[in-house]
Amino acid sequence: VVEKVLDRRVVKGQVEYLLKWKGFSEEHNTWEPEKNLDCPELISEFMKK
């Protein structure tokens, strides 16, 4: 389960987000493609920053 979106990048035309996973430490954060995500409210919250 995604706890928080930390960053955004574009790699080869694909948007990816750096995710903080609930119950895991920062060392387990991962970059995931936008198309694989199902957390629009967290993405929206990140984009407001």
Results as ranks from 00 to 15, higher is better:
L19W: 01
V2T: 07
L19H: 05
W31T: 00
E26Q: 08
G23C: 06
L19F: 02
P33F: 07
R9I: 00
K35F: 06
W31N: 01
E34I: 06
E41A: 13
E32F: 12
D7C: 04
W31P: 02
L19K: 03
P33E: 10
L19A: 11
E34W: 02
S25T: 10
F46M: 15
V2S: 04
W31K: 02
L37R: 02
K20I: 01
V11T: 10
E45M: 12
Y17S: 00
K4T: 07
P40E: 13
C39I: 12
P40W: 11
K48F: 02
I43G: 02
Y17C: 02
Y17I: 02
E34F: 04
K4F: 05
W21C: 02
K4R: 07
E45Y: 12
L19M: 15
P33A: 15
D7Y: 03
C39Q: 07
E41I: 11
K48N: 15
R9M: 00
V11I: 11
V15C: 04
C39K: 06
L6C: 07
M47K: 15
K12S: 09
K4E: 08
E16C: 03
K48L: 09
P40K: 14
S25L: 06
L37V: 13
F46Y: 13
V1E: 15
S25P: 10
D38T: 12
W21R: 06
S25E: 13
E34A: 10
E27C: 10
E41R: 11
N36T: 15
V15E: 07
V5G: 00
P40G: 11
G23K: 05
K49R: 12
W21Y: 08
K49Q: 06
N36V: 13
E41G: 13
K49H: 14
P33M: 14
K48R: 08
P33Q: 15
K22G: 08
S44Y: 09
D7H: 04
E26C: 14
Q14P: 01
V5T: 02
P33N: 14
E26G: 10
K49P: 15
C39S: 09
T30W: 02
F46N: 01
P40D: 14
G13D: 05
L37C: 14
D38M: 06
I43A: 05
D38P: 05
R8E: 10
E26W: 09
S25H: 13
R8I: 06
L18S: 02
L6N: 03
D38L: 09
N36H: 12
L6E: 09
K35L: 08
D7E: 12
S44Q: 14
N29E: 06
L6Q: 06
R8F: 07
C39T: 06
E41D: 15
E16Q: 15
V10D: 07
S44L: 09
E26Y: 10
E16D: 03
F24M: 15
G13C: 07
V5S: 00
K12R: 13
S25R: 08
R9S: 01
E26R: 10
K49S: 10
D7K: 08
K22P: 01
N36K: 12
N29M: 08
E3M: 02
G23N: 14
K22M: 15
C39R: 08
M47L: 12
V10P: 01
V2G: 08
L42A: 11
I43C: 08
R9Q: 05
E26F: 09
E27I: 14
V2I: 14
F46D: 06
V2C: 13
M47H: 15
E32D: 03
N29C: 10
L42H: 07
L37K: 01
F24S: 12
G13K: 04
E27H: 11
V2Y: 06
F24H: 11
H28G: 10
K4A: 09
K22Y: 06
Q14F: 06
E27K: 13
L19I: 15
P33D: 10
K22H: 09
Y17K: 00
M47E: 13
T30S: 14
V15P: 08
K22T: 10
Q14W: 04
D7L: 04
E26H: 09
E3I: 03
S25D: 13
K4C: 03
V15I: 12
D38G: 10
E34T: 04
S25I: 02
L6S: 03
L42M: 13
F46C: 09
N29R: 07
K12V: 07
R8K: 12
K12N: 09
K20T: 05
Y17N: 01
R9V: 01
C39M: 07
T30C: 07
G23T: 07
V2N: 00
D38R: 15
Y17H: 00
V2W: 07
R9F: 00
E16G: 01
F46K: 02
I43N: 01
E45T: 06
V1L: 04
L37T: 08
D38Y: 03
S44G: 14
L42C: 05
E3A: 05
C39Y: 05
G23F: 11
E26K: 12
Q14L: 08
E3W: 02
G13L: 03
L18P: 00
V1M: 06
H28Y: 09
I43Q: 03
N29P: 06
L6D: 00
L37I: 12
F24P: 08
Q14C: 08
E27W: 09
E41M: 10
L19C: 15
